Computed example of a mutant assay.
Amino acid sequence: MQLKDFIDKIEQLPTPDPVVQRIISIASDPNASAKDLADAMRLDPSLTAKVLRLVNSAYYGLPRKIAKLNEAIMILGFKTVRNLALSVFTYKSLTGSRNSKIDQLALWKHFVGVAVAGELLAHMLNYPNREEVFVAGLLHDLGKLALDYISPESFAAVAKVTKTLQISFFEAEAKLNIPQHTATGSLLAERWNLPEIVTQPISGHHDVKSFSDSVYADVVSMVHIADFVVNTFKFGDSYTYGGLKLSPDALNVLAIKPKMLTNYVDKLKERLATAEEFLSIDKAVEV
């Protein structure tokens, strides 16, 4: 399958519905109010119920239950609520392919793991845009979702090659002349009107060095490290069974020393344990 053919088929993929698109737009508008965001979300009661369930999960550790959307927005911020809405949409899209030949929930678990790992690393590094690192981690393998949706047989073939040859998914795609998930994922994210701080890590999380001069080299590096560690934990399944290496360039960009990396790994084990609600979004109460 050639990239041009794949790009044509990307048009068939689900895009965020008007409510989610409106949420993304409002969250990026510095003049928008919490009421604006709440009013947009209330147009989809099911989405609202699921977002409130995630707000009250152990991951955020709020001292009391939040029942009102306006309050959730004020406490967590616009971008975090946007991330929750994107999480719900992505989960729905990922698990909606009836012809899939893979364990979609295991892939989703990997998505969530990298989101959580990226946000934790951003916190430890005092990076200000932690919410963007979360969503970049959540969507870093968006191209795999696209491949599974467009051609489940091609996804299965790539997974077989990576397991047989013990190489990365990225390398297996190249061997089979299948468009690489980093490129297709970035194209899809652009179609969803997501900013470069999200699309660049999707493009570059397997090729940090090429993005070393980018204004978002730090975010690319954080997502790369998060992806590597989550893969070593075997938290979920990225369908990569070998060939992954921790880039020295990523460590250099972020000035991470071995002691900090060890501390990060220890903290991440605890943090992932709080992300259970993200793994079962479909269990949220419908209203």
Rank of each mutant, 00 (worst) to 15 (best):
Q2Y: 12
Q2V: 04
Q2P: 15
K4S: 13
D5W: 13
I7S: 09
I10K: 09
Q12S: 15
T15P: 05
V19N: 03
I26V: 05
D29R: 01
P30Y: 01
N31Y: 06
S33D: 04
A34V: 03
L37F: 04
P45H: 06
S46R: 02
A49T: 09
L52D: 07
V55D: 10
S57L: 14
A58Q: 12
Y59H: 13
Y60G: 11
G61K: 10
P63I: 05
K65I: 08
L69F: 06
I73R: 02
M74A: 14
G77K: 14
F78R: 04
K79C: 06
F89M: 07
T90H: 04
K92V: 02
T95Q: 00
S97K: 06
R98V: 00
R98A: 06
S100A: 14
S100V: 03
K101R: 13
D103Y: 02
D103P: 01
Q104P: 01
L105K: 10
W108T: 02
F111V: 02
V112C: 06
G118K: 09
A122D: 09
A122L: 00
H123T: 14
H123L: 13
M124A: 07
M124K: 14
Y127F: 15
Y127P: 07
L139G: 12
H140N: 11
D141M: 14
K144G: 00
L145A: 05
A146G: 03
A146V: 02
D148V: 00
Y149G: 00
F155C: 02
F155I: 01
F155E: 03
V158R: 04
L165N: 07
Q166P: 00
I167C: 00
S168D: 04
F169Q: 14
E173Y: 05
K175W: 11
L176P: 15
N177E: 12
N177M: 09
P179Q: 10
T182D: 13
T182E: 14
A183E: 11
G185R: 13
S186C: 14
L187M: 14
E190V: 12
R191M: 15
L194G: 10
L194M: 15
E196C: 13
V198W: 08
S210N: 11
F211S: 08
D213E: 08
Y216R: 04
Y216E: 01
V220N: 06
S221D: 01
S221G: 05
V223Q: 10
V223D: 11
H224A: 01
I225A: 00
T232Y: 08
T232L: 09
D237R: 08
S238I: 15
T240W: 09
G243A: 04
L244R: 06
P248E: 02
N252V: 10
I256R: 05
K257T: 01
K259C: 06
M260P: 03
Y264W: 12
K267N: 10
L268M: 05
K269M: 15
R271K: 15
R271M: 13
R271W: 11
E277V: 12
F278H: 03
F278L: 03
L279C: 03
A284F: 05
E286P: 14
